[in-house]
Amino acid sequence: MAASEAQLKKMLSKYKYRDLSTREILNVTSLYRDLKPLMDSYVFNDGSSRELLNLTGTIPVPYRGNTYNIPICLWLLDTYPFNPPICFVKPTNTMTIKTGKHVDANGKIYLPYLHEWKHPPSDLLGLIQILIVVFGEEPPVFSRSTAPAPYSMYPA
């Protein structure tokens, strides 16, 4: 069930631009219904942590004739939307990350759109649409092959 405006405003009580953030989150979650806003503790590189809102769920990515539900997590800093979200691919245990130009081994996502973020016009909807295009060309995760590993002919 999508979070209501009141619930979001409560979650975003410590955010500097609460109304702007609330409006964008409502907009994006109404279009990409599987993305859910959650409050959680985000640990920064320097070891400090902060209670931040993240949008967690899947986005539909067409790839070679099929549509895959790629799991992502978008963390909104408390200065959102004037700072870009911190974005991750969140592989399940049946998936492996495919590192590449846009994704590192931790699943962190790097995009010129994030690097050159400026609000407006940069926003979550634009970000997700670019993720769908980029991941449609180069999927960030693949499903692990379920074929059993061949037994070695010689016992160890």
Binding site: D34, T58, I70
Partner: peptide, 14 residues
Amino acid sequence: LNGGTIPTAPPSYT
């Protein structure tokens, strides 16, 4: 993920 859509990914041999 919270009972939402099941995450899927392309098979690696594509």
